[in-house]
Simulated assay, not measured.
Amino acid sequence: MSGKIVKLLISKDPKSAMQSVNQIILEEKKGIFGDRYCAQEGTFSNKGEVEPDRDVTLIEIEKIEAFNQACNQTTRAEDFRRNIVVSNCDLNALVGKEFQIADVILKGIRLCEPCNCLAKELSNEEFLKNMQHKGGLRAEIVKGGSIDLNSQIEV
């Protein structure tokens, strides 16, 4: 399986909007340099304790597009607050598996289910039902490095 990077996103803190960037630097046992979780400032961060399922999150653009079509929405990838938006890659199949993007090695830890915060923000009662098991993947950084928009996902 080979996938494509569509967008790379980071946010400095939980209240800041996600910012699109051309490249990210991933650090083992820390996260993405410049992102809220690397600084342990994320909504679900445990201060002083780095959790591997908070290193990096991914989501499929096809799932976002299907949600928008089914629910007549215009939700952007940034609204989901995931770090890496991919195309042509079944992220659910990567739970418990290692995969590579450029020189970075990631391990899928668990699905990144949609949260009530986004459902409320979208004012969409169908959101949680329509995005269950489609909200992306939480992954651990096994080997750090950099990823840019030209990087490919190799499983």
Rank of each mutant, 00 (worst) to 15 (best):
A17N: 14
I32F: 11
N46S: 12
V85L: 11
F99C: 02
I141A: 06
S87T: 02
S2L: 04
V95R: 00
E51F: 12
A77S: 15
R76Q: 12
N124P: 09
N88R: 01
I141R: 01
E60F: 06
V85N: 11
E140H: 02
C112H: 11
L94Y: 06
L122S: 08
I147A: 14
E60I: 03
L58K: 07
E51N: 11
N83T: 00
S45C: 09
Q23K: 15
A17S: 13
G136I: 00
E41H: 14
N88L: 03
N88K: 06
S123L: 12
S45Y: 01
N130Q: 13
Q100G: 03
I10A: 12
V6L: 07
E27S: 11
E113V: 06
L118E: 07
E121K: 15
Q19T: 10
F33L: 15
S87D: 09
S45Q: 00
S11R: 13
G108P: 00
I105F: 09
I64Q: 03
K129C: 13
S151H: 12
E49T: 07
K63H: 14
I147F: 13
E121H: 13
I101G: 01
E121I: 09
D13R: 00
I64N: 01
N72M: 08
R81A: 13
S11L: 10
F44I: 09
Q152K: 11
E65Q: 14
L128Q: 13
E140M: 03
V56H: 00
K97R: 08
I153A: 10
C38E: 15
L94A: 02
D35H: 08
V50I: 13
I105V: 13
Q152F: 10
I147S: 10
P14T: 10
C89W: 06
R81Y: 14
Y37L: 07
M131R: 11
S2R: 05
E140T: 00
T57K: 05
G145P: 04
L58M: 14
V104G: 07
L106N: 01
R138W: 04
R82W: 12
K97T: 09
Q73V: 01
K30T: 15
L8E: 10
E113H: 09
K129H: 15
G136L: 07
E49R: 09
D90R: 02
Q19S: 12
N130S: 13
L58R: 05
F99E: 08
L94K: 01
V50F: 12
G136N: 00
D103E: 09
L91Y: 06
E98Q: 09
E125L: 14
C89Y: 07
E98L: 03
G144D: 14
D35Y: 14
C112Q: 04
K30H: 15
G144C: 05
N46K: 15
S20T: 11
K120G: 12
C115V: 04
L26W: 11
V155M: 07
V95P: 06
G108A: 06
I10S: 10
K29I: 08
L8K: 05
S2M: 08
E27W: 08
K134Y: 10
D13M: 05
S20M: 05
N116R: 14
V21Y: 09
A66C: 02
D13I: 03
S2N: 07
F80P: 01
G96W: 09
C117P: 00
V155C: 07
C115P: 00
V50A: 05
G144W: 11
A39E: 15
A102P: 01
L118Q: 11
R36L: 00
R82S: 10
E121P: 03
N92Q: 04
L58C: 06
Q69P: 00
F80W: 15
